[in-house]
Simulated scan of single mutants.
Amino acid sequence: METPRFIQGVYSFEGQGLERPVPLRPAIAYTVPPDRRAQLIYLRAGNSSAELVYLLLTRDGQPMRYFPIGARAALHVPLVIVEDIHPESVLELSVGAPEGVRGLATIDIGLAEI
């Protein structure tokens, strides 16, 4: 049976450079239960800053998806290509932003545990 999971909230960030993504505050992490797999279904996000930023979703410390968000903009990404995320995998979300840029990211991520 499929179980929906959501990661939602408003998170602050301060950019350390576009090549140095940093964790959002508070940090966002999700661990797939040991007896399940997960699939990323969609991501909606907003950026309050006046600069382009991107969200980086990592799986076990390795880049999985990049989501660029324009200045003072939002995006909705329904994921058409869905892959299984193995049991006990750890997903984390970071932000890349120009150095010194501060802002808020509004996050809504939908996952399915199967």
Rank of each mutant, 00 (worst) to 15 (best):
R5F: 08
L93V: 15
A71S: 13
Q39K: 14
V90K: 15
G46C: 10
F67M: 14
V53W: 01
P87A: 12
L24F: 07
A105C: 14
I85C: 07
G96A: 15
D108Y: 05
I107N: 00
V53I: 15
V53G: 01
P34L: 13
L40C: 12
P4Y: 03
S94K: 14
H86N: 10
P26D: 01
A74I: 04
A73D: 13
R5V: 14
S12I: 07
A112W: 01
I81L: 12
G100H: 07
A97F: 04
S49A: 15
P78H: 06
I69G: 06
V95D: 02
V90D: 00
L57C: 13
E83L: 15
L79P: 03
L18N: 12
D60F: 01
E14G: 04
E113D: 13
T3M: 11
A45M: 09
V95R: 05
V101Y: 00
P23W: 09
L43H: 02
L104Q: 07
Q16W: 12
V22Y: 00
E113W: 10
Q16G: 15
P87M: 10
S49P: 10
R25D: 02
E83G: 14
I69K: 04
L55T: 05
L56A: 11
E19D: 13
P63N: 08
Q62A: 09
R20L: 07
S12E: 13
G9S: 00
L79Y: 11
R25L: 12
I28C: 08
I114Y: 00
D60M: 03
L43F: 09
E14C: 10
R65K: 11
P21K: 09
